[in-house]
Amino acid sequence: MRLSITAIFSAALLLGAASSNPAGAAAGKDVFEAKGCGGCHYTEGPAREKTIDDQLAKKGPELWYAGSKFQKDWLGKWLADPKPIRPMKFNNLMQENTGGHPKLAGGDVAAVTDFLMGLTSTEVAAGKVKPKKNPKGRQIFTKKMPCSGCHQYLGRKKKLSGGRSGPSLVEAGLRLNPDWILAYLQKPKVFKPVKMMPVFAGLLSDKDMLNVARYVANFKPKKKK
C-alpha cells in the first residue's frame, strides 16, 4: 500500500514538474496574441535591446525567458489577479505604479501560464540555488553592494525597507526561480543587456552571487508551525 501511494505521489510530482503542456501552451499563445499582450511584452529571444532608447521604447518586461524566471504557481495567481510588482511604473521614475495590468479569467489563466512557462532559456542551470537563510548574502544585499538601495524587501521585524526604482523583492522567493536569480546576476547581458541595475558580474565573486541568490530566494512568508 505504502509503495503504491509513493508511486502515485511520484507520478504526480513528475507530472507537476513537467511544466510544458503543449496543448495548453498552444491555446495560451492564441490567448496571448488575441489579447494583444505582445504589444507590451515580447516573447521571442534572444534579448533585442542594444541601447538605452531600445530599453525605454519597451512598454513592459520581456517574457522570452518567463518559464525560467517565474514560479508556475505564482504566475497563474498573478495573471488572474495582477498586483503591482514595481513601486514605480515601468521605465518611469516619476509616476507611481498604481496597477491596472489586464486580468485573465477562467481557462485563459492556465493556458497563458502554460504558454509562458514553456518559454525558457538554456542559460539558466537548474538545481544550483537552494533558498536558505544566508548572512553573507544579507550582508551583500543590504551593505556591501546594496541591492536594497533600489529594491524593496521585508527587513527586520518585517518592516518594508529598500528603494523604489527596481522591482520589489518582497516575497521574491514565491515569484522567482532561485536558479534564475543566480543566472541573472552572473549573465546580465543575456537577460537584460540594457538596464538601470549595475552589472555586478566581475565585481562580486560567483560564490557571493550564489549567496545573494540564496538570500533573495528565501524571501517568502514563514510556514506556520
Binding site: 521614475l93 516619476m94 533600489c150 528603494g163 523604489r164 526604482s165 538601470m196
Partner: peptide, 25 residues
C-alpha cells in the same frame, strides 16, 4: 540620457539628490 537612465533613480532627474529611491529610510 545616460544620467537620467542610471543615476536619476537616486540622484533625481535634475540631480538634486531626490530620486525615487530616496525614502525617509
Amino acid at each position: 540620457k545616460v544620467f537620467k537612465f542610471y543615476c536619476a533613480q537616486c540622484h533625481g532627474l535634475t540631480g538634486k539628490g531626490d530620486g525615487p529611491n530616496v525614502t525617509k529610510d
